[in-house]
Amino acid sequence: MAHGAGRLALAFMLAMVAGCGSTASGSRGDLAPRYRTLDRGPGALFLSGGADDPPPLLARFRDLAGGRGARIAIVPFAGGPGAGEPYRVAFTALGAGEVAVLEPDALAAGRAAIAGADGIYVVGGITRILVDRVAPFSDAIRAAWRDGAAVGGHSAGAMICADQVIVKGEGPAALAHGVDPSAGGLDLRAGVGLLPQAIVDTHFGERARFPRLWIATGATNRLGIGVDPGTAAVCTADGLLTAYGTGAVTLIRPGGAAGSPARVSVLGPGDRARLADWRPQPAE
């Protein structure tokens, strides 16, 4: 029963990716990732609530990428010079294999590193800048993910994995003006699109973001995933979302018509929800 639902969610995710028109890259030669296999399906998505990930959460990402020896590509495009270095050090200390820190201007080298990675980790920063700078790499990230690479990040790095990204506006602006950047409301942009029909928000409990995600999901009829700091929502190919860390993951399913009640779930550490209908399942 649960297996069938997982397959359904998987098929849904695959259909969305196919819709993006990306194609898997051809021969990778020496860059072939160590831990990906073509029959594994899409890799895991690791959405962390920021700000900096504590080592246990980074170890979780390393494991999703294949464990020790996994090749990690770090995408620090919004954090300023040197923003990727702490993550290179941290993943190396956690026993990752080759760790590449990408640069926004080195497009070809970056795409090659993404194609050869078992895990692609996007460092947070200013969301609007990150969306713009990651865009030229998006199809490479989608292709690698579809081949089984784990993709994730914290803060803005988690937000851009979804298909819509809040790049500007907080709760009061959202409540007063809705999704309307010209009027001072929320500004939404297209993300990498690994998570179909969803919006991810981070620093969730800490920055009073429930109202803004509630408005954004209602206006776009998308599912909202709010992640607290120190916490990660992990979506896997079996169609489940699992909460890890110390805080909560809040799931908002809009009610349809504007202003109508939404359905909301709160997942604590270890709790899971099915991606297809967002119904929580008891923690194991």
Partner: peptide, 11 residues
Amino acid sequence: QGETARVAVLA
């Protein structure tokens, strides 16, 4: 609906 709740936000 299991462990989900109905939620409305009033401004």
